[in-house]
Design a protein around this nucleic acid. Structure first.
Lengths: 174, 174
DNA sequence: CGAATCATGTAATGGGTTACATGATTCA
DNA sequence: TGAATCATGTAACCCATTACATGATTCG
């Protein structure tokens, strides 16, 4: 049981295990894919690797299935719950990272042609609009299942996509 | 001159060198700190390491100062410019990553106390509001110096902060 | 002239990304 | 009963992050 510094991925896994009960990495992967993963991508390999680390640190219990797929199912330990609750109870003022390749390209827009910029803007407008539609569909499908707070998070996604769609539309018109 | 896969950091550096002319890592660091770095953080160590890689790849020229600080000044090569222009001319549909610890906490809000959520929301509202003010000040100070497209990028930041401020305010009221 | 801060890097560690790989299920 | 896809990982490499470190400047 070694101490370790907990990363955002750690807390994601801790939170998922605490919320979902005994789960496998695959189940976490699926959950992430239709929720937080939309705007913060976590590759599935991490959802396999991170629980191992947390288990080594004593924050998760690991229960390996005998026979068949021999998959591993994780449960949170009291120490894990304590770590999670401590983290949840402590507000962050850490700033949001918005990593967007398209914005980086626009930032250097002075070195691109106006045709390039226009194509970029059109592509982005379409992408953000499509994403917005996905969110609407997702919301309709999980309302009643998801927690109030999961829905709030989704709401942020929706508002963000609306803003971005509008922004790129303006750039395209220019 | 080895080939290598170019990361976002690579393009950031290529773009900065192309745009700023012969520059040192420190100068890039300063420029980043008051522009794109606000929403996509690039630690200064990368602005020292990445130019070396790009130089090894033949995309940048490196000119080491004799005596004094012996600092290195970088210039883009024709190959570098070609790589940059190719990248700029190709629209991305890659999706935006929004990495926000506070949203991750809210996502697991069902496991926090209402006091915790409220404190989180208040902290976030203040942080986003402050950031918005910084952007306003920044805009006032660079208008006329920055390119049109750099200002547009800043504009996205402003709109984003407005949305987030409003969002957390609603959560706090709840 | 000493202290603080600016300027300029390097070192080390590990998490994250990308690929690879293979055993179960499903389904046409 | 194959082929496709689902499910479940492991491997390897490297970038990114966090520290550490030290020579210039500035300034009280």
């Amino acid at each position: 049981v070694e101490p370790l510094s907990l990363t955002p991925t750690s807390y994601l896994v801790l939170g998922l295990v605490a919320h979902m009960g005994p789960v496998t990495s695959y189940e976490m992967k699926q959950r992430v894919a239709i929720s937080i993963g939309y705007f913060w991508h976590f590759p599935h390999s991490q959802l396999y690797a991170e629980p191992s680390r947390l288990h080594a640190a004593g924050l998760l219990d690991e229960d390996a299935e005998e026979g068949g797929r021999r998959r591993k199912r994780y449960t949170i330990t009291p120490a894990g719950r304590k770590a999670l609750e401590g983290w949840l109870s402590e507000p962050t003022s850490e700033h949001t990272e918005v990593r967007d390749l398209a914005l980086l390209k626009l930032f250097f827009g002075a070195m691109a042609s106006s045709g390039d910029r226009r194509r970029l803007a059109l592509t982005q407008r379409a992408a953000h609009q499509a994403r917005e539609a996905e969110y609407e569909a997702l919301r309709a499908s999980v309302v009643g299942v998801a927690t109030e707070w999961e829905l709030k998070t989704l709401e942020v996604g929706l508002r963000f996509e609306k803003v971005m769609t509008k922004f790129w539309e303006e750039i395209a018109e220019e």
